[in-house]
Amino acid sequence: MQNEKMIVCRCEEVTYKELMETKKTYNCSARELKLRTRAGMGYCGGRTCRGMIDKIAMFQDSPKNNKEVSLKYQPPIRPVSFTDLGGVKQ
């Protein structure tokens, strides 16, 4: 197995190759990289791979913005079931 097949986002099975190619083709920001590939959009909410997406997005250019978190966090930060949301007692 080569580096290319290496998975970065475990939830959505997005590979290193796919992310690097997307970055090179579109020169995208971390957010665009996420939206184009679904990396960071899976079950864990990007808790595992967000740092790696950031690093790939910074490849070749873009100095780190040190005052704002680069990928937005949105509630709920943990998955909530509809049963719980609807207040249905189990």
Partner: peptide, 21 residues
């Protein structure tokens, strides 16, 4: 895995990664 069927086990063991669901 839901998509490719690859086997998964625990990864972070403290609730962050959801791999063990």
């Amino acid at each position: 895995h839901e998509e490719n069927g690859t086997p998964r086990g625990i990864y972070c063991n403290i609730g962050h990664c959801y791999e063990c669901r």
